[in-house]
Design a protein around this nucleic acid. Structure first.
Lengths: 337, 337
DNA sequence: ATAGGTTGTCGAAGCGCTTCGACAGCAATC
DNA sequence: GATTGCTGTCGAAGCGCTTCGACAACCTAT
């Protein structure tokens, strides 16, 4: 392993000079800089991460806590993780992957050991047990997702309230009066995951204003679960003509079932999905949808975090405005016979 | 931040004693150990990762390189990543997430800087440009996936050859004579991703032995692409009664299309999928499938890696035997009218 | 009693880097 | 010609830990 000292010797300068060439924290004459850079290249020098971290108290690593469970939005999580990793890299940071498994202990471990300079938390629950720890440390952090109390925290999320409202508005405008919401798996609501509840709140309150009737049913993904859910919905509200689907693994089953029952989309029934664009365009009917901007969320989170690490930036909430794209799964409500 | 020295002072012992309590590398009397452990707890001490890495030349971090692109098996990748992270943790390692973006440079950076003690590579291509670097370093590594030349490398993968063979065997046993393979997106083959080619090889050579006709068509995921592919297949081989689908985002579209064309599954047409069990059980027809054992692969990879780090373990290839589960999407070939 | 082992603890060196203060050299100012 | 102010470089201290050799203290076997 090549060390700083060896580079210094090779270039005929002192170790500190090499360090300053690397960090740019003091001015170095062009000739020395070039000589040092040349030596670095020739020897194939890479600074030792541990030594650097020890001396500077900075690891240049950000931790990313992802959920352990895979009961929702797996591709979204993945896309966020990838966006976080690539964005972090452009700012000179590497990403440490933590699963939810350790829970709050992971936060303690990371802050305590100086393993990472900052953290990004995903899968935030409304009353997340990691939050007190984050508030109690001076290590910067960003949440992807919104807890109930955001004071003293930086959060990035899609504006789920607005998303719910947007979906129901679109259906209202098309004349639908009875709307069913196919939600995430029950477990997601039970653990009070912010986005699911917020979507529903936003949707319901807008529906009230617009005088629509809303029936919400959580739904595990998959064909069988969707079949059972649909049967119950149509039994309870036979006049339902609009669907909002938040569980992406229920989308395709729903379409198949409707088709099978002779209900045409969008002639008889309209469907709005909340899902990544890829899902919306690959479905058997091109879906009118509100996109989940996974990449943007990941990128934003890192950029807020880097800002904080640089001393710029402050605690606040970044809500990304939802956008609804009209495709082929929604149309005017059928006129009563 | 609490340091070792502070713990030592608090416990009335020397720093080295505390260190030995922590590492267990020398025997310590029960009384001192207890006293030290007590102090550690009271002060809330966490060893500093950087200092540790510097002094011991071990970071206790393993790097995981995941593919940047998301054109295949996203949930599988995610599951592997999570399995790697949790398994690594049980062995005292953390996981650094690298995306393919940097390519071979990432390998250089990580080995050069001592950021990680070892690495796991995913999305391995048959002739991967990272391999020479891995062979040229003494840093342990494990590949998830099989390159063309595995000499000097440790690899973990599903036995894709056997997987292909298994699928076609199952169809043959049911009396099907004409089989179509719906493959991954063309790009996957173009970059010579091992698993796709191997599956095909295994399938073709077994088909030859069993005297079946095979038609292979790569296919982007989604409904439209699948529709076009299916039309071409049925045009070229109208007698096709068996399908093997490797692209999980083509499965549901295929089922929908067949249904739409009045071809019943499994009465008229049989479908075998290669996909995670979750996909197979959630599809509109419960799919006969060969499971992709994502968790097992991740776990295995970490365990091989840890073995190497401990000086046990050697270079070799672990192939996981495929298992075919019969569900409702395959049945006897229809007898010719 | 003495030599030879064990066991438990300590002191000190050193891992490779950053960073601070010092200072030589030189140009501009009075 | 002395003073001030830069600029560019160096030496040394120190970050918090691991680890090696030393060595008391005690136990066994002669």
């Amino acid at each position: 392993m090549v060390t700083l000292a060896e580079v210094a010797q090779h270039a005929g300068v002192s170790a500190s000079t090499v360090s300053y060439v690397l960090s740019g924290k003091r001015s170095i004459s062009a000739t020395t800089r070039l000589r040092v850079e040349q030596s670095i290249r020739e020897l194939g020098y890479h600074p030792n991460a541990g030594a650097r971290a020890l001396a500077s108290s900075k690891s240049n690593i950000v931790a990313l806590m992802i959920p352990l469970r895979t009961d929702m939005y797996v591709p979204v999580m993945m896309e966020i993780a990838i966006a976080v990793a690539t964005t972090a890299r452009t700012h000179g940071y590497d990403v440490l992957l933590l699963t939810g498994e350790e829970g709050p202990d992971a936060v303690r471990r990371v802050t305590g050991s100086g393993l990472a300079d900052a953290m990004i938390l995903m899968d935030v629950q409304l009353d997340d047990e990691r939050l007190p720890l984050l508030r109690g440390t001076d290590q910067p952090s960003v949440l992807i997702g919104l807890p109930a109390d955001t004071s003293g925290l930086t959060c990035v999320d899609l504006d789920w309230n607005a998303t719910g409202a947007l979906c129901v508005e679109h259906l209202a405008k098309l004349g639908h009066r009875d709307v069913a919401v196919i939600g995430e798996a029950p477990a997601v609501y039970e653990r009070h995951t912010g986005f699911a509840e917020r979507t529903l709140d936003g949707l319901r309150s807008r529906a009230r204003e617009l005088d629509l009737r809303v029936l919400h049913r959580p739904c595990e993904g998959g064909y069988d679960a969707m079949a059972a859910t649909l049967a119950r919905v149509l039994d309870e509200r036979p006049g339902t003509t609009g669907f909002v689907v938040q569980n992406e693994s229920a989308v395709e089953p729903l379409l198949a079932l409707l088709r099978q029952q002779g209900r045409a989309v969008p002639e008889d029934v309209s469907v709005v999905a909340i899902c990544p664009d890829q899902v919306a365009t690959q479905a058997s009917v091109r879906l009118t949808s509100v996109a989940i901007p996974a990449q943007e969320m990941g990128r934003h989170a890192v950029e807020r975090l880097v800002a904080k690490l640089d001393g710029r930036g402050s605690d606040d909430v970044v809500l990304i405005a939802p956008e609804l794209t009209v495709r082929a799964s929604t149309g005017p409500a059928p006129t009563a016979p």
